[in-house]
Simulated scan of single mutants.
Amino acid sequence: MQLEFYCADEQATQALAQQLAKHCQHAMVVYLNGDLGAGKTSFCRAFIQARGYSGRVKSPTYTLVEPYEVRGWRLFHFDLYRLADPEELEFIGIRDYFAEDCISLIEWPEKGAGLLAAADLQININFTGDGRTLKLESQSEKGDLLLQQLRTTTHDSKMSY
């Protein structure tokens, strides 16, 4: 299943992330793809805050991963852009980040190929004029369920925010 959204600005992208976070009720692995500056980190920040985290959401560009604990969930925001070798993920205990109480948001997932858990949802963010097009593609039954719930609230599989 896939849904596509046009977001005219950063606030629209954040609104979509908030809607997705509201419906995310299962352990989930989300891959985020897009060029530098496409809005991956803004999307993750809005998602984490919508889950109830009230502190500062930092970019994990230099730390690889930032952890957050919210309402019985462990959320992990990965930014693998600076990852030199996927084997570095073994040193941080990568398998521990994909438990049943975890939601992992992974920017630049291709840099961790072979060591990351499979995605439940893949989000591709592309520049479209002054805005962004976000294509959300489920990769598992959990991903299908999440997109079905999102579609129910947006009432249109190709919606503008």
Results as ranks from 00 to 15, higher is better:
V30W: 04
P86C: 05
E100L: 13
G34S: 08
E107W: 04
D120Y: 04
L64F: 06
H77Q: 02
L115S: 01
C102M: 08
V30E: 04
G72N: 04
G93I: 10
F78V: 01
F78L: 01
R95M: 04
E110T: 02
T41K: 08
I94M: 07
S42F: 09
Q122S: 14
A118I: 05
D85W: 09
K111A: 06
G34A: 06
A46I: 00
Y53C: 06
E110M: 04
N124Y: 15
Y31M: 07
G114I: 02
L64G: 06
Y31W: 12
A84V: 14
I125S: 02
K111L: 09
Y53A: 06
L75T: 01
Q49D: 08
G72K: 03
I103Y: 07
Y68P: 09
P86E: 09
V30P: 02
A84Q: 15
A38R: 07
G39K: 04
L105E: 01
S59F: 08
W73R: 13
Y97W: 02
C24T: 15
V57L: 08
Y62C: 12
N126S: 13
K22Y: 14
T61Y: 07
Q122C: 06
A119K: 13
G34N: 05
Y97D: 01
C24H: 09
T61D: 06
F76G: 00
R82V: 04
R71K: 11
D96Q: 11
K111W: 12
S59W: 01
D79T: 11
E100Q: 13
G52Q: 00
E107S: 06
K22D: 07
S42V: 12
A27Q: 12
E87N: 06
S42R: 13
P67I: 15
K22R: 15
S54I: 11
R95H: 10
S59P: 09
